[in-house]
């Protein structure tokens, strides 16, 4: 990198490269900065406007600086809406769904990767097939089954269907296949049972995949919207995305109340944003794994 950058300084026979390289870099940075603004400025506006008064937000929507700075929006989020309740529900759903997904998907992934049992091939084919089923066509079907089982409009209906997903099984299976079998064999020869081998020998080795799956499940269930739309109806069972959607569609009554809405959306974004910044490389890996699996 440095040699390339230094090149313009040293006179070479390709002397015309100097200004061109400079121009390229200038143009490159201009493009990068412009698009960084495009991708990040909406969040800046969101933060700024959530701290404004309503008239201020309406007259200066582009400005990131609140004048005057008020916490009215946030106060009303906690006093005038059911936000704390939605937050609690979201935490409950996310924790249980993530724990369930990580445990069940790694169990199934391990069985599909390592255990030899009748029907394994067919099961794996079924997992691949299920991954292709688009979520949006399941709206009515899910409602039907929850209704039929009598768990519509309950925590069970809200959480149980989120406890496993085919993509997680796939990720875990791929990972288990990539680690050497010799360690497990040694454990087995030492007389460890299958579950014990899985639990105390294989799982500790699968840490990277487990972290990836945890983050994926966390993000997925925290942001999950369509499922909560068709599984519950009672406002006391709303999760954050459902509550937010409800706020926007006019349950607030008078005025646009943008500072409040933007603030609520901001609070709903923060947990995933923190996870994203801390575990960034796992997100990046996931995007690339997505490239492999399809």
């Amino acid at each position: 990198m440095t040699t390339l950058a230094d090149r313009p300084a040293t006179p070479t026979r390709r002397g015309d490269r100097g200004p061109r390289t400079l121009a390229t870099r200038f143009l490159g940075y201009a493009v990068l900065v412009f698009f960084s603004l495009v991708f990040l400025y909406p969040f800046v506006i969101q933060i700024g406007n959530s701290l404004k008064t309503e008239p201020d937000a309406a007259t200066n929507p582009l400005s990131p600086i609140p004048d005057p700075l008020v916490l009215d929006g946030f106060v009303r989020i906690f006093t005038g809406t059911n936000f704390p309740l939605w937050l609690g529900n979201s935490v409950l759903v996310t924790v249980l769904a993530t724990a369930g997904r990580v445990f069940f998907c790694s169990l199934a992934g391990y069985a599909l990767a390592r255990l030899r049992f009748r029907g394994r091939g067919g099961l794996f084919a079924a997992v691949i097939a299920v991954m292709a089923v688009p979520g949006v066509v399941l709206l009515i079907p899910k409602f039907l089954v929850l209704n039929q089982l009598g768990i519509y409009n309950s925590y069970t209906g809200l959480i149980l269907p989120l406890l496993a997903d085919a993509a997680g099984v796939f990720i875990m299976k791929q990972f288990f296949e990539s680690i050497p079998v010799s360690v497990e064999e040694a454990a087995r020869i030492d007389g460890a049972g299958i579950f014990r081998t899985y639990w105390s020998v294989v799982l500790p080795m699968a840490k990277p995949a487990l972290i990836t799956l945890t983050i994926l499940s966390f993000q997925g269930s925290w942001n999950e919207f369509p499922h909560s739309l068709v599984s519950v109806q009672d406002p006391s069972l709303f999760t954050l995305p459902r509550g937010l959607a409800d706020l926007v569609s006019g349950s607030l009554g008078k005025g646009t109340q943008y500072p409040l809405k933007l603030g609520a959306a901001l609070l709903a974004t923060i947990p995933v944003a923190i996870i994203f910044v801390v575990f960034q490389r796992h997100f990046v890996r996931d995007a690339n794994e997505g490239a492999d699996k399809t």
Binding site: F35, S36, F39, L40, P42, F43, I45, Q46, Q219, W222, N223, F225, L240, P241, R242, L244, A245, V248, K261, L262, A264, A265, L266, A268, T269, V272, A273, F276, V277, Q280, F283, V284, A287
Partner: peptide, 17 residues
């Protein structure tokens, strides 16, 4: 990071923005 960040946020929250 900057370009990828919008992809991980909640579709509902981003729609509000």
């Amino acid at each position: 990071t900057a370009f990828y960040f919008p992809s991980v946020t909640s579709s509902v929250a981003i729609s509000v923005v």
